[in-house]
Design a protein around this nucleic acid. Structure first.
Length: 407
DNA sequence: TCTGGGGTCCTAGGACCC
DNA sequence: TCTGGGGTCCTAGGACCC
């Protein structure tokens, strides 16, 4: 059987490039897209900023230190989603087999497309050209016989790269390649492998399987395959992904200031629970397990979960479970981050709840969803949250509707 | 002007049951 | 008359990706 041909497309400095495209005064300048909150990190530095050593994940302070005249731009996720949608459209001109790997990356299975667009390199050049014409954005493209190698290829040349790893090249490319260059081998695995005397993919490929499985369990075989450039993962389209059930849905937020006040934490939990609940309902999901995650001021992070009698998708139910968990935790420190997530998901069969009080709750939730969808998040919300707004302290600036709020 | 937010998968241990 | 053994469910945490 002939091997397939996979393209991995990685948009270069995506958020920053989208912002530079939208605002000409930012072009060719060192900018960094950052979360809008006071305590955040750099999400995407422009290439001009990278030249000064600014990297993703740096704090604002670190970025300023590396590049004093850097321009900080608040992240605007609507803008990036729109750009991502436009990109998807372009990619689908070439093949229907497109897998969005993240907001700025995709795998394309172009096996058998030669007749239409020429060989894979020619096709990659066409795609780059189309993206540049339509959006004035550059990308790096890796071409390989599978997703692992395509992804590796797109990482090898940035920005505006194009790297082909053909089946014949695989052993040569991997022989001296550090294992951490592979997608799926992070800092922890790198360290464990180094302790076994394995630093390169070549060494990983030659390691005895027995040694790998005794140390890593079922991951062992997968690791050896990775060292050999073997990956049988398939490209999964949007539709196929949509047909699959999500495993969990959650939201978390770092507070503007560390907080030791339990009642205040409860209000943050309510806000998060409402967000999660709306997404669950929108996807026709409900879930049986509620997890509360806390991060202390010293960054120690832990979670507690609770399995419920029945699956829920209403903010107040999720809030009640999460607050129940909170009350069982003796807070050892002020809290820096609060997270609420729901798992053990089920797909709801749309039906009217049996009991009147359940029906009322469903009705209220539907009405709130409808209004919030139309006028923006938290236009209508629960009294305890409205109280927060009246006192003027914004829980999270990101979710503030632009116009006047109506209660 | 210290360290974001959204996920998935895997493991290990305990409770519980037969 | 010391501590079988398998299976499932549940919880907590960690690794990894962007």
């Amino acid at each position: 059987m002939n091997p397939g041909t996979i393209l991995h497309i990685d948009m270069n400095a995506f958020f920053a490039s989208v912002e530079q495209r939208a605002d000409p005064t930012l072009r060719e300048k060192p900018i960094a897209v950052a979360g809008s909150k006071t305590r955040g990190v750099v999400l995407s530095p422009s290439y001009e900023a990278r030249a000064y050593g600014v990297k993703t994940g740096m704090t604002y302070g670190e970025a300023k230190k590396a590049c004093p005249h850097i321009i900080m731009v608040a992240a605007d996720s609507a803008k990036y989603s729109a750009a991502c949608e436009q990109l998807l459209g372009i990619w689908q001109e070439f093949t229907p087999l497109v897998e969005l790997f993240s907001i700025d990356e995709a795998f394309l299975d172009v096996t058998g497309c030669e007749a239409l667009f020429g060989d894979p390199v020619r096709m990659a050049l066409l795609i780059k050209e189309r993206i540049w014409e339509a959006m004035k954005l550059t990308c790096s493209i890796g071409i390989g016989p599978n997703k692992l190698l395509a992804k590796l290829g797109s990482d090898m040349q940035k920005p505006d790269g194009l790297v082909l790893i053909s089946s014949a090249d695989v052993a040569g490319v991997l022989e001296d390649l550090p294992v951490q260059q592979l997608c799926g081998i992070g800092p922890s695995l790198t360290k464990s492998l180094a302790a076994m005397g394995i630093g390169t993919c070549g060494e990983l490929a030659r390691a005895p399987l027995r040694q790998l499985t005794s140390r890593f369990g079922i991951l062992g075989e997968r690791l050896r395959d990775m060292g050999r450039g073997i990956d049988d993962g398939v490209v999964t389209t949007q539709q196929e992904q949509a047909d699959e059930m999500s495993r969990s849905m959650g939201h978390s937020m770092t507070l503007d200031e560390d907080c030791a006040n339990v009642e205040e934490i409860e209000r943050h939990i309510l806000q998060l629970a409402e967000k999660v609940a709306r997404r669950l309902r929108r996807g026709l999901y409900s879930g049986r397990t509620v997890t509360l995650t806390l991060r202390y001021a010293d960054f120690h992070t832990f979670s507690r979960q609770r399995r419920l009698q029945r699956a829920v998708n209403h903010g107040l139910d999720i809030h009640a479970a999460a607050v129940g968990i909170l009350h069982e935790i003796p807070l050892a420190q002020a809290v820096r981050l609060v997270g609420v997530s729901v798992s053990s998901l089920e797909r709801n069969v749309a039906q009217m709840p049996l009991f009147p009080h359940e029906r009322r709750k469903a009705f209220v939730a539907d009405a709130m969803d409808e209004i919030n969808d139309r006028y923006g998040s938290f236009t209508v919300t629960w009294g305890t949250l409205a109280e927060r707004h009246r006192h003027g302290r914004v829980i999270s600036p990101a979710w503030r509707p632009v116009g006047d709020r109506q209660y």
